[in-house]
Design a protein around this nucleic acid. Structure first.
Length: 1100
RNA sequence: GCCCGGGUGGUGGAAUAGGUAGACACGCAGGACUUAAAAUCCUGUGGGCAGUAAUGUCCGUGCGGGUUCAAUUCCCGCCCCGGGUACCA
């Protein structure tokens, strides 16, 4: 009987659907296994043969696990929101919902033909209100949460409000946009709007000002890859950098956990590495550089009085050499052993929420001040018990007098005060700090971030990002015009342009900062090679050890030299480093060139290697309070607003103050409104602005007509929508409990299914979906909604299936085509030809003539009576005419053949071209396997016991398949099946004892044919519920081995010997073999190597 | 530039705790069955040289070195291809 795949496949697909074979439920007595595919975006083009690759692999694995006794969750759904449907809607006016539904239907039809074991009862669609209700729900939770670094988790925003009410922003270690400082009193004094604005700085979903590519002509924001050379890809309209208020997710708060979590999951090295780079952790230091006195707060006159020359002295040196030497050790000792009260106060002050920097046990003249803020000239003295002693009182007075004379204000607090009511003390300090300064303004310093503090002595200038907050502060009136011009030109350059163009540009701000260690003046420049979004948006430039700084110093060398009083801005610090060499950004080598005697700073790095120098400099920075050790991340917050129609609406309205408010959770889902057109409005407002019903009645708690907005009880709803990654961030959780109306996922379901054991998908989501999903999951973990901190335990990236294009060669200016191997004799143009008209690279000339009218009269120059096409591997796409539709393959060969052939093509994770040519081999294999069961037309499986030979073949195969599938080596499994079936066919094996287990073994790969044979074998139910056969070593034992015998490493002959005999007997047997004499040429062997069961090598 | 991954017949690919390179397929060539085609089956198939032949022999896993009885596999230095990322201080 012939293998009628079409009939068999149709029959079993219907049977599975009818019997709900793949429906799963929580089963606490069974081990679970969760296999997930990245759900597809249902595009209009349908599936091509590359799409199912990952689905086939995951299906084989799911079925395999099920045979091994696991309760397998293997769901499928659709990532249904997206741009193509919206653009199609703009062009045709068709509602995206309609086209999306049609595409989903087509996808489903195609998927159903392939015999997947999906539990379709759990299907999700991201555009379904019942689904996106939970996307909106998570958003509200994010909006109502902040991140505590102390507890290392997200907490309700209400707790933050409580903290503000009690003690303001002091001492809080939380994730925020800007470090704010305000007291409890300040908080209470804020208006409701101010409070909301303040909270926005801490929410995990927040409205933030972000830099976007704005195209006024199109009325929309463009992604980076939609902008080319400063104009829009579509239409070529000008694009500018614009600050826009957009919803953002504070992903950066989770940077550390996202990084550390990678250690606990089984992903490929390269994917983990990509995520690590994306998160971009770097350890370094933040260093404060005071601006010169003329601009920032003055450093006073103490230095003059104490006899130290002004020039070359750091601003924080408020004492002279004499007093320094006699007092510094005392001060250090006091820093190291603070009292409890001092400690508490210091922690509060140094948290920097005060907005000013404090130093402790700081030398001023001949005195040591407990705490001092140099900018505000404020000294805080914490009085312990001994301050009451008579002599001490006098001394204190003397000191206060000295300090007052030098413009310091002395604030005295007692130990008890601090311990009893820290908040009150802080309030006292804050009040004093808020006294307006007598002259000047601003913080008077610039903070930089560096990973190379060891190069601090090579700093010769500073550079700020154009968007830096410092810029307005440092620009001098003289430079104002030049800076304005520069900022305007920088704005016009998009971010991408900045990166690609290597033109070095910049402008001098007019200000100087002071080198924190040597006191040398450093000119402050502005340049777009410094990014506002990374670190502090300001850098210390070390041209001798950073190629970018070097390029800048080269470009502006003349100006810099003049600003540095004729000195060379390039100061090499590392031995053997030379800027003329390629790699002068050295990270190895000995430090040289620390400042010479006469410099007031006590740091010397000479002789240390880079790592030691970094550590020592960091220590120095901490000790002298010039900054702090800091870890910085490259990972930025995710922009979460899109000016689009086809996406999830934000469950947010804007109250009378214009501040966003979350809808009550009971009001969800907030459904996407109808609009008349899907375009942005003429004024550049998002499409939802067109909705007639898009206002929130806060009393009736429902959506009402936009016209009813009164800003008293009826308010405008948010008109942006969420981006693509919103809906895909938690879909794996929803599959666990897809119909739950009360919760995203119930505790029971979540605790059973936990997380995804195996996730298969493309590598293109490495830094998008796979980061956001992990973030989203960790947030839900903090909330206690889910019980696992990582969503995807093991992840495999399937490789891309590339296209294999075919070409014909047209002779120039003719309608004649010449076959591949004759084309060099003519002047030809290669043309893509549809691969579906080509078989084994031979063109079907009649189909070709019928393909297009211009080819109707085509003439061919053949070779050997055939037209041979050329070929090339290219992306599979319509324009290359190399798209192969799985439906066509299924029709011609069946789904089982397609499934096995896709696996046979090569290793799952490797990219490889699709070539339909090889498919016959796999199809032949299935026919051969089918024939094992038949004698002519009769099903002829016998119940005779199996022979040794047959059992050996079977058990070897079981072992091989088990090991290969566990290792996702599906291509070698298919070969193993071919070998096994070839061997059994040779033995004419028709025995049930062999064929029945073989059928179970093959069923994950070719489920339809196996179901059919399973039922012919008289088994009831689905083969999916069979048990995977166990292999037994005893059937695999060999008792002899054919040893390859080599002489001097060259294989000469083979000799079969029994296994288990001692090595020396093997050696003797080999040397006595008559063939050996020939290769030994009468000499005695120097050495004979015998590896039992492997090889014999004779060294002559 | 930096970080990953990879270079094996005409093609897709096997084989690495170092141990018979090219499994399994495709293609190709020849043959059987057939009026013919399809289907099926059999044989050969990395390259060179010698031989009518069986066979023998040398060369072969990107290139050049090294370690070893033995290297596709380990080490050093290059070249090329694919992917990610990019003024990240």
């Amino acid at each position: 009987m012939d293998y009628n795949f079409a009939e068999i496949e149709k029959k079993w697909q219907a049977w599975w659907a009818e019997n709900q074979t793949f429906r799963v439920q929580v089963a606490p007595d069974k081990p679970k296994f969760y296999v997930l595919d990245m759900f597809p975006y249902p595009s209009g083009a349908g599936l091509h043969v590359g799409h199912p690759l990952g689905y086939i692999a995951s299906d084989i694995y799911s079925r395999f696990r099920r045979l091994r006794g696991f309760n397998v969750l293997h769901p499928m759904g659709y990532d249904a929101y997206g741009l193509p449907a919206e653009q199609y809607a703009i062009q045709t006016g068709q509602h995206p919902e309609v086209t999306t539904a049609a595409n989903i239907q087509r996808y489903r039809q195609q998927l159903d033909k392939l015999g997947f074991s999906f539990d379709w009862s759990r299907e999700v669609k991201t555009c379904d209100p019942a689904y996106y209700k939970w996307t909106q729900w998570v958003f509200i939770r994010l909006f109502n949460s902040f991140y505590s670094y102390e507890k290392n988790k997200a907490l309700p925003i209400a707790e933050l409000v409580q903290a503000f009410e009690a003690s303001g922003a002091a001492g809080l270690h939380v994730a925020c946009g800007k470090e704010l400082s305000f007291s409890a009193a300040d908080w209470h004094a804020m208006s409701e709007k101010e409070k909301q604005e303040t909270l926005m700085n801490y929410r995990l979903a927040y409205l933030g000002d972000t830099m976007v590519n704005w195209c006024a002509a199109l009325g929309t924001v463009l992604a980076n890859d939609e902008v080319v050379n400063g104009v829009s890809l579509r239409g070529g309209y000008p694009v500018e950098q614009k600050v826009m208020r957009q919803w953002c997710l504070r992903v950066s708060a989770y940077a550390e956990r996202l990084l550390n979590g990678l250690d606990d999951i089984d992903w490929t090295v390269s994917l983990k590495e990509t995520q690590r780079n994306w998160i971009g952790r770097s350890e370094g230091a933040e260093i404060h550089l005071p601006l010169t006195p003329s601009k920032g707060g003055g450093t006073g006159t103490l230095q003059k009085e104490t006899g130290v020359p002004r020039k070359g002295v750091p601003h924080y040196h408020t004492t002279g050499k004499l007093y320094w030497n006699s007092n510094i050790d005392n001060a250090r000792a006091m820093r190291k052993s603070p009292t409890q009260a001092e400690n508490i106060l210091w922690e509060m002050l140094r948290a920097k929420n005060m907005g000013y920097r404090f130093r402790r046990q700081h030398l001023i003249g001949n005195f040591i001040a407990d705490f001092v803020c140099l900018e505000k000239k404020l000294v805080i003295e914490v009085d312990g018990g001994h301050h009451k002693a008579a002599g001490q009182k006098e001394y204190d007075e003397q000191r206060t007098c000295f300090l007052n004379e030098h413009d310091f204000y002395v604030l005295r607090v007692t130990n008890e005060e601090v311990l009893a009511d820290t908040a009150a003390v802080l309030q006292k300090i804050t009040r004093r700090l808020n006294v307006p300064p007598s002259s000047g303004g601003g913080r008077g310093e610039v903070v930089v971030f560096t990973t190379r503090p060891d190069t601090i002595f090579g700093v010769t200038f500073m550079v700020l990002a154009p968007e830096s907050d410092y810029v307005p502060e440092v620009v001098t009136p003289r430079q104002q015009q030049a800076v304005n011009d520069y900022l305007a030109s920088a704005k016009r350059r998009t971010e991408r342009e900045r990166m690609s163009g290597h033109k070095v540009t910049g402008v001098f701000s007019g200000s100087y900062a002071l080198h924190p260690l040597t006191g040398e003046p450093l000119p402050v420049w502005i340049s777009d090679y410094v990014l506002a979004g990374y670190g502090t948006g300001a850098i210390m430039a070390v041209p001798a050890h950073d190629s970018r700084d070097y390029a800048f110093a080269k470009q502006f060398g003349k100006e810099l030299r003049a600003q540095l009083g004729g000195k060379d801005p390039v100061v090499p610090l590392i031995e053997g480093c030379d800027v003329s060499m390629e790699s002068f950004d050295a990270k190895e080598g000995k430090m040289i060139n620390s400042p010479q005697a006469g410099c007031p700073c006590r740091l010397t790095l000479n002789g240390l290697d880079v790592q030691e120098a970094i550590a020592k400099t960091k220590e120095y920075i901490e000790e002298y309070d010039l900054g702090r050790i800091r870890v910085n991340y490259r990972l930025r917050d995710a922009i979460f607003s899109r000016q689009r129609y086809w996406g999830e609406p934000f469950p947010v309205y804007y109250d009378a103050c214009g501040m966003p408010q979350a809808l009550p959770e009971e009001a969800l889902p907030l459904e996407l409104p109808e609009v008349d057109k899907f375009l942005p409005t003429g004024t550049g407002e998002p499409p939802l602005s067109r909705a007639a019903h898009w206002a929130w009645d806060s009393v009736r708690k429902k959506v009402v007509a936009t016209a009813d907005i009164d800003n008293k009880t009826v308010f405008a709803l948010e008109r942006n929508t969420m981006p693509g990654f919103a809906g895909s961030s938690a879909y794996y959780l929803r599959y666990m409990d897809p119909h739950n109306e009360e919760a995203l996922v119930s505790r029971e379901n979540n605790e059973y299914w936990r997380n995804v054991d195996l996730y298969i998908g493309g590598t293109e989501h490495a830094t998008g979906h796979l980061i956001y999903s992990r973030f989203w999951n960790k947030f839900l973990f903090d909330l206690g909604v889910v019980c696992e901190s990582e969503p995807f335990k093991k992840l495999i990236n399937q490789g891309m299936i590339q296209g294999r294009s075919n070409f014909v060669y047209r002779i120039q200016n003719t309608n004649t085509f010449v076959s591949l191997n004759l084309k060099d004799r003519y002047d030809v143009t290669p043309l893509h030809v549809d691969v579906n008209m080509v078989s084994n690279d031979v063109l079907d000339v009649d189909k070709f003539r019928a393909w297009r009218p211009e080819f109707a009269g085509a003439e061919f120059i053949l070779e050997d009576g055939k037209y041979l096409c050329g070929w090339a591997v290219e992306k599979m796409s319509k324009s290359m005419y190399n798209v192969v539709n799985p439906d066509d393959i299924v029709e011609k060969y069946g789904a089982d053949t397609l499934r096995m052939y896709e696996m046979f093509l090569g290793p799952l994770e490797q990219s490889k071209p699709w070539d339909t040519n090889g498919i016959d081999g796999v199809h032949r294999f299935l026919k051969k396997y089918w024939r094992l069961f038949f004698e002519g037309d009769a099903f002829a499986v016998s119940d005779e016991p199996a022979g040794t030979q047959e059992l050996k073949i079977l058990h070897r195969l079981i072992k091989k398949i088990q090991v290969d599938v566990e290792n996702f080596s599906f291509n070698t499994s298919v070969s193993a099946f071919m070998i096994g079936v070839n061997e059994l066919a040779e033995l004419k094996c028709r025995k049930r004892a062999i064929l029945q287990p073989l059928t179970v073994l093959l069923s994950p790969f070719a489920p339809h044919i196996c179901e059919e044979l399973w039922s012919l074998l008289g088994r009831s139910g689905s083969i999916a519920d069979a048990a995977f056969p166990e292999y037994e070593e005893k059937y695999m034992v060999e008792n002899s081995f054919e040893y390859p015998v080599s002489f001097n490493g060259k294989l000469r002959f083979k000799k079969t010997l029994p296994l288990g005999i001692p090595a020396r007997e093997i050696e003797a047997a080999v040397l006595n073999d008559e063939q050996s004499a020939k290769y030994m040429e009468g000499k005695t062997p120097k050495k004979v190597i015998v590896v039992e069961g492997k090889i014999v090598n004779v060294v002559v």
